[in-house]
Amino acid sequence: MIRIAITPAAYAAIAATLPGSVGVEPQRAPNGDYFVWLDPAVVTRLAAMRGPGESYSDVILRLAKAGS
C-alpha cells in the first residue's frame, strides 16, 4: 500500500465510494489534507492520468466530475 495525501474536496468526492481496502488515517496533514493508503496499481493509474502540474486530488476531482 502507498500513502498519498488528497485535499478535503477530493476526499469528499470519493469518500462514499471508497472500498474497505482503502485505509484513511484518522490524523490529517497540517494543511487539512487526508492521508489515504491505496494499492500501488491505483496510484500508478492516478499518476498516469495526471496532466502537467496536476496533483492526485486534481485527477480525482476531474474523474468525479466526469462521472456525475
Rank of each mutant, 00 (worst) to 15 (best):
F35H: 12
I4Y: 07
V22H: 13
A48C: 01
A41Y: 08
T44E: 15
E25P: 01
T44Q: 15
D39R: 05
G67E: 15
R3N: 08
T17C: 03
V42T: 15
M1T: 10
L63Q: 14
A12Q: 07
P40H: 11
I14P: 01
R45Q: 13
Y34P: 13
P40I: 04
Q27W: 10
N31W: 10
S57F: 06
R28K: 14
T17A: 14
L63P: 04
A15C: 06
Y11K: 14
A13R: 09
Q27M: 10
S57L: 09
Y11C: 00
L63R: 15
V42M: 09
A15S: 15
S21R: 12
G51M: 10
P26K: 05
A16Y: 02
A47S: 14
R62T: 08
S55G: 07
A15G: 02
G53F: 03
L38P: 09
L46A: 12
S21D: 03
L46R: 09
I14K: 05
S68E: 11
T17D: 14
P26D: 00
S55I: 11
A5D: 03
G20P: 14
G32R: 03
I60Q: 04
A13K: 09
R50P: 03
A5M: 02
G67F: 09
S68A: 07
G32V: 00
M1W: 06
A48Q: 11
